[in-house]
Computed example of a mutant assay.
Amino acid sequence: MPATGEAERAPNIGGAVWEAAGARAKSEGLPLIWVMSRALTEYAAGTLPLPRITTSTRAGNRRGRSVFATNDVWAGADERRTKAAVRSMSALCEILLDAYARGDIHPYARMVTTAQREALTAPRPPVGTGPAGTTPVPVAA
């Protein structure tokens, strides 16, 4: 299901790459279309460099696969792709998914669990109130 403002795109991605990325996404409990959307968004924003320009030689038959992105993300990724001399948006999407399948990129790096979020936002004890002989170190949020 696309997020608000996202449109369906159909880049041609090799079957072996799609399946390998899908297996990793499934093992992490993530929808593959979300992984692709996140990777495109990070790439368009300039926070995700391309790990390498080519995908594996065993990419398999390529066909249109559903991915979702806003017009701004798609245009931003397309602009960066052109500067990086990647031949097409299909090739870019395949490169990103291949890197994800190999473990070279991690779209969840900025995400935290609910418990982690609560721990990060919970009130901290005042400095000097820890067990005898210790002083908690304030952590920047």
Rank of each mutant, 00 (worst) to 15 (best):
101 A>T: 04
32 L>G: 01
125 P>E: 02
133 G>N: 09
68 F>L: 09
133 G>Q: 08
4 T>W: 05
123 P>S: 13
48 L>A: 04
82 T>K: 15
45 A>K: 10
7 A>E: 10
98 D>Y: 14
43 Y>R: 08
9 R>H: 13
35 V>P: 05
129 T>D: 01
138 P>A: 13
97 L>C: 03
8 E>I: 09
1 M>Q: 09
19 E>R: 15
37 S>Q: 08
5 G>F: 10
8 E>W: 09
93 C>N: 04
130 G>T: 09
17 V>G: 07
96 L>E: 04
141 A>T: 09
32 L>I: 07
38 R>N: 03
42 E>L: 08
96 L>N: 05
37 S>C: 03
58 R>G: 10
92 L>N: 05
13 I>P: 10
110 R>W: 09
118 E>C: 05
52 R>K: 14
57 T>D: 13
141 A>W: 11
48 L>V: 01
128 G>V: 06
35 V>A: 03
17 V>F: 10
57 T>R: 15
106 H>N: 12
88 S>T: 12
76 G>W: 03
104 D>Y: 08
85 A>M: 13
81 R>Y: 02
124 R>I: 11
14 G>Q: 07
114 T>N: 01
98 D>F: 14
31 P>F: 04
1 M>C: 06
87 R>C: 04
49 P>D: 14
141 A>D: 04
112 V>F: 13
123 P>W: 13
102 R>K: 15
101 A>C: 06
82 T>E: 08
99 A>G: 01
111 M>N: 01
79 E>P: 01
87 R>P: 03
130 G>K: 09
104 D>N: 05
23 A>G: 00
48 L>K: 06
17 V>D: 04
46 G>R: 05
22 G>Q: 02
50 L>S: 07
62 R>G: 15
30 L>F: 01
29 G>M: 04
63 R>Q: 14
133 G>I: 06
89 M>C: 10
25 A>G: 01
14 G>E: 04
140 A>N: 02
118 E>M: 11
109 A>Q: 07
50 L>C: 08
69 A>N: 00
103 G>D: 00
81 R>E: 02
79 E>T: 14
102 R>N: 09
130 G>L: 11
126 P>R: 13
57 T>E: 14
135 T>A: 06
130 G>V: 08
3 A>T: 00
54 T>H: 15
